[in-house]
Design a protein around this nucleic acid. Structure first.
Length: 341
DNA sequence: CTAATTTGACCAAG
DNA sequence: CTTGGTCAAATTAG
């Protein structure tokens, strides 16, 4: 189902060279992130930490560039790819599973270290595993709206080895589900941009390293991952209470600068397409081809806060600014954005 | 009752 | 083979 029509650009590990390179980069980034985490536990990190951050930042920008060029088309829809489930017997096991299992992973979006499971999105846990070389199990979540809206966003949550009170959350795939909060702020920002813009068309993927060093946030794509403000229901209690000890909490002031680095004209353009596409319903233009992720796109909202506030109180504060949308989430979602049919 | 989580099996990649 | 990621039946929570 999720396929057809252009189905996700999932298979990143295909045959196109750029994709392969990108895939490698993803791995490198992953390892680097792990390393960084390990470093956090050691007493004398010294410049190592800074080095790691720089490495990660460079990786991110490299991946962004690759993402815009590679990853695109490719994708042979022919579902024939994998799927096996050995045709063998039909009555062997206790329960017969049909169709394929493991789909290719969605593209990596961002990794954050926080103390709460609640990031404003609705997640449904679908698995847990003990990971080799790690004392803590890893939990797998997918977007609650997957069945309804086909949202392919997933995340992996794992406790930090060194800091059991901290959680490392890796995000994969974009949220294609309609999120009132994200959507509204998105429009507002876009309007502002349009007003100011004139036509200049220069796409600059400024590294934004310096500022991006915002403590514990590692993102492959400086854009994306809009953490919606309002906290719907929490899929799990906010674990322990003491989050006062924010790691390093650098408020990251350079949000405006970052925003300015993006091509405003493009942004407006995309915005226009987005809104109209949405009215069509079902499958919004670019659900989540890699291109879109690294390419342009919304994130006027995301940019503002690329480092997720680790304190629940912050969330609460933000939910206040939401206004009318704050009240109804789940049920309201459908009512507000029921473009289908 | 429905919906979310738990848990072991299944599956693919290295 | 091992490891990590996903599925879905069984279980639990609201």
């Amino acid at each position: 189902m999720t396929s057809c029509g252009g189905g996700g650009g999932d298979d990143a590990s295909g045959h196109s060279p750029p994709a392969a390179v990108y895939d490698d980069l993803v791995k490198v980034r992953d390892h680097a992130a792990t390393l960084e985490n390990m470093l956090q536990g050691t007493p004398n990190v010294g410049d190592a930490g800074e080095l790691m951050k720089e490495m990660l930042a460079k990786l991110s920008s490299a991946m962004s560039v690759l993402g815009t060029t590679g990853g695109a088309a490719a994708s042979s829809p022919a579902a024939g790819g994998r799927r096996k489930r050995s045709g063998a017997a039909a009555s062997s096991g206790p329960h017969r599973r049909s169709s394929s299992r493991r789909r290719t992973k969605s593209p990596f979006i961002e990794m954050v270290t926080t103390t709460t499971l609640n990031d404003g999105k609705s997640w449904r846990k679908y698995g847990q595993k003990n990971i080799h070389d790690s004392t803590n199990p890893r939990s797998y979540y997918r977007c609650t709206y997957k069945p309804d809206q086909g949202c392919m966003a997933t995340r992996q949550v794992q406790k930090s080895q060194s800091n059991p009170s901290e959680l490392e959350i890796s995000y994969y795939g974009q949220h294609t589900c309609r999120d009132p909060a994200t959507f509204s702020s998105f429009i507002v920002q876009g309007a502002a941009a349009t007003a100011t813009s004139d036509g200049a068309n220069l796409i600059s993927f400024a590294p934004i390293n310096g500022g991006a060093a915002a403590s514990t946030s590692t993102s492959a794509f400086p854009h994306q991952v809009p953490f919606s403000r309002f906290s719907s229901y929490s899929s799990s209690p906010a674990q322990e209470g003491p989050n006062e000890g924010t790691p390093s909490g650098s408020p990251s002031p350079a949000c405006y600068e970052k925003f300015m680095q993006y091509d405003i004209g493009q942004l407006a353009d995309v915005l226009g397409r987005r809104t109209s596409a949405l009215t069509v319903g079902s499958a919004p233009a670019g659900y989540w081809p890699v291109v879109n992720i690294a390419g342009v796109d919304m994130d006027a909202a995301g940019v503002g806060m690329d480092s997720f506030p680790s304190s629940p109180s912050s969330l609460g504060f933000m939910s206040g600014s939401l206004g009318s949308f704050g009240g109804n989430n789940l049920a309201g979602d459908d009512d507000l954005f029921d473009f289908d049919s």
